[in-house]
Design a protein around this nucleic acid. Structure first.
Length: 720
DNA sequence: AGCACGCCGACT
DNA sequence: GTCGGCGTGCTC
């Protein structure tokens, strides 16, 4: 592998004046288009396809253009499509120093294509180096990255940074294992509990590409069911990819894959394996040595060969949302992948997101569900404690624990562990009718109203309009209440209430994986619930108000998802499993929990979103920046005709203290945000327009930081 | 972002 | 004449 030394660029130290003159002349001649590449010093080039089209890995600045370079003869063999290269880039027309032309610094890139000629009308610089001959960027992966970049108005280079892990020479040197022949198709196993479960597996095993939204039955079987879907795909001679929200879920699916497939047939891709190990696993997948992958969100780009199935577990979990630009969501990436590779698609969850419901409603995917009898046979009994009960129960109110809840815990503890779910801190309050709890919404755009308890100072969180005379459209009430509840002392209080029972906590810092089947109080925040051996005897879901009171379109769906995630760890009703949720029984998510009907809940939400023009039925983008820059950007952007602008509204000023959230303005700067909404089918046009506007602003020196910065976010997660 | 090119005012 | 101000535009 040669570097610039001895290649076209380098070599002669101290060139003669005549050579300098020659170089200047070739600059003047450069205006004429040339069929064949010419380099600065005319060194030997590859005889066939002497032009390399390169994607320069430089964030957002060059904006998705390729640059052509000449391929020196000695790099000919290594300079294949997909390899990492280093090239000189930048610095005007290049300056000549000590006889050597130095066009800016060396930067990394990917060789995308070899060509016979370039359409660039100037002399080409030569590739400086082929970093390694490993073709890491396949045509397929490039196509996916391009689609993701377009979908999210981002740059290809940004997406590739997410899709291709950093190189480790040692990992590359090591040979990958020999690929194993396809396994036999698996038995249907517990897939038989679903009406079309067996047919789904058979379709995968016979080379089909079924697409399903799978509402999983509560209990621990889901990971083995995923493993069987993978095994069926492998049996057809194709590869499979499973993306799950966190390390614990990876471990479960990993174990299930090992038990269904045996050793050596699958790779685990997670961020917390070191960079070398991670790259080694990734390479084994790319090289086709391993045909099945399970991992967390970064694995959504795993270069699985001949993909037959992409599967995603629990798409409502927000860790599926990539925090790095352009912030793609694993569900959307896998949707793009399924479309591009024409492979099977499986979106599974105990709960159901509105997006998942939309996939079924649009006919793109089929529902994979169990019968009501099946659900009733495995789900626990769910009971509610609302404000009415609390009010009647003064003593319980003081203890923050109503009688029914108290009884359920005490009874549960006689038979096994009891789970107590408490919300995390830090939920932002939003306003709701003090009488009927209907969220207060803007009458113009239906955005969430924010403000103080006095109805006088209400303002819409989306369009910024003031609301001077709010009254509740449901019950006619005019008093508001901020929906925020604190709940931290619960664990201590419970511990004191049941002094004979051990109390274990699982939360952000210490997440327990499993707990034994012996009686214990297990206090956990949402998402950190340990699995109990033999299932929990009971679960207590506290402070539903805090979960439902977030200023987020997903508050209901999210609360239901978290409740169901906890309740799914509880024994079946027949085995005495009981769940008590402390929340108003008339609320839709609460009713959906009682009936164990997350799909019905999502379908109703979807209908409402369509009516109100909310995502995912319409698509939204958030554009934020300092007032003037934002206005300028929007004026210059050629948005689709149907685009509707909501706002601007001021963004909260970020303080120096506290966690910096992704997407928050720079510390201390006053920023505003505008939401852009387009009807169904115009999402691509919106993304393209925003991308183009961003590109032209960059070209004019807008810069990505400081004064003129404007941030664009497709599918903003926190739109009230 | 860098960095070079280019088109106007005070200097050896 | 030419050195150098920073305003504009390109990077194969």
């Amino acid at each position: 592998m040669s570097s610039e030394n001895g290649s076209v660029d380098g070599g002669a130290e101290g060139a003669q004046p005549e050579q300098l003159a020659l170089i200047r002349e070739s600059v003047r001649n450069a205006k004429v288009p040339r069929a064949k590449p010419r380099t600065w010093r005319g060194a030997a080039l590859a005889k066939e396809l002497p032009v390399a089209r390169v994607l320069v890995d430089k964030g957002v600045l060059h904006l998705d253009r390729y640059f052509d370079y000449a391929v020196p003869e000695e790099l000919d063999a290594d300079a294949q499509p997909g390899v990492r290269v280093r090239v000189r880039f930048g610095a005007g027309r290049g300056r000549v120093r000590e006889g050597r032309r130095e066009g800016g610094g060396l930067i990394d890139g990917f060789l995308v294509e070899r060509l016979a000629e370039s359409d660039y009308s100037g002399p080409l610089a030569a590739l400086a180096q082929v970093v390694s001959s490993e073709p890491v960027l396949s045509e397929e992966l490039l196509g996916l990255a391009r689609a993701v970049a377009d979908r999210y108005a981002g740059s290809l280079a940004d997406v590739l940074q997410l899709a291709v892990p950093p190189r480790s020479a040692r990992a590359e040197q090591r040979p990958s294992p020999e690929p194993l022949p396809p396994p036999a198709a698996p038995e249907a196993g517990s897939w038989g509990r679903y009406e079309r479960g067996g047919a789904f597996l058979e379709s995968l095993a016979s080379g089909g590409a079924p697409r399903a939204v799978w509402n999983a039955l509560p209990g621990p079987e889901w990971s083995e069911e995923l493993a069987r879907a993978v095994a069926a795909t492998l049996a057809s001679g194709r590869g499979a990819l499973v993306v799950v929200p966190d390390g614990r879920a990876v471990a479960r699916v990993d174990a299930a894959l090992t038990s269904v497939l045996g050793e050596g047939r699958h790779a685990v891709l997670t961020a917390d394996a070191g960079p070398e190990k991670r790259y080694r696993e990734w390479l084994a997948v790319r090289r086709g040595a391993v045909r099945a992958v399970v991992g967390t969100r970064a694995a959504m780009f795993a270069p699985v060969r001949d993909l037959g199935l992409v599967a995603l577990w629990d798409d409502g979990d927000d860790s599926h949302s990539e925090p790095h630009a352009p912030q793609p969501h694993a569900r959307e990436v896998l949707l793009l992948r399924a479309a591009q590779d024409k492979c099977g698609f499986l979106l599974g969850s105990w709960s159901c997101t509105v997006e998942a419901a939309q996939l079924v409603e649009s006919g793109w995917a089929r529902p994979l569900v169990a019968s009501r009898e099946q659900v009733r046979a495995v789900a626990p009994l769910v009971r509610t404690v609302g404000d009415q009960d609390l009010a009647r129960d003064e003593a319980a109110r003081a203890a923050r624990l109503p009688t029914l809840a108290w009884q359920a815990v005490r009874e549960g503890l006689r038979h096994g562990p009891v789970l107590v779910q408490v919300p995390r801190r830090g939920y932002v309050p939003r306003m709701a009718c003090a009488n009927c709890r209907e969220p207060a919404r803007c009458r113009h755009c239906a955005g969430p109203l924010e403000g103080q308890e006095s109805a006088a100072a209400l303002r819409c969180g989306w369009c910024g309009r003031e609301e001077g005379s709010w009254h509740c459209p449901e019950c006619g009430g005019f008093r508001l209440r901020a929906q925020v509840v604190g709940a931290r002392r619960t664990a201590e209080e419970l511990g004191r209430a049941f002094p004979a029972v051990p109390v274990r906590t699982s939360g952000r810092e210490h997440v327990l994986d499993t707990v034994p089947g012996a009686p214990a109080l297990v206090v956990s925040t949402p998402g950190a619930e340990p699995v109990a051996e033999g299932g929990y005897a009971a679960a207590l879901l506290l402070d539903g108000w805090a979960m439902l009171g977030r200023p987020d379109l997903r508050a209901g769906e999210d609360a239901l998802r978290r409740w169901i995630a906890a309740a799914a760890l509880v024994r079946a009703q027949e085995a005495g499993g009981t769940v008590v949720v402390v929340a108003e029984p008339t609320l839709r998510p609460v009713q959906a929990l009682v009936r164990w009907d997350p799909v019905g809940h999502a379908v109703r939400e979807l209908g409402e979103r369509a009516e109100l023009g909310f995502p995912p039925v319409s698509r939204m983008a958030a554009v934020s920046g300092a007032g003037e820059a934002l206005a300028e950007f929007l004026a210059a952007a050629e948005l689709p005709e149907e685009a509707e602008l909501l706002g601007p509204v001021p963004l909260p000023v970020t303080g120096a203290a506290g966690p910096r959230r992704v997407g928050a303005p720079p510390v201390g700067e006053r920023w505003e945000r505008v939401l852009v909404r387009v009807p169904p089918g115009r999402g691509a046009a919106l993304a393209a327009a925003l991308k183009a506007a961003q590109a032209s602003r960059m070209a004019r020196g807008g810069g990505s930081a400081g004064e003129g910065a404007v941030w664009v976010r497709i599918d903003p997660p926190d739109i009230g």
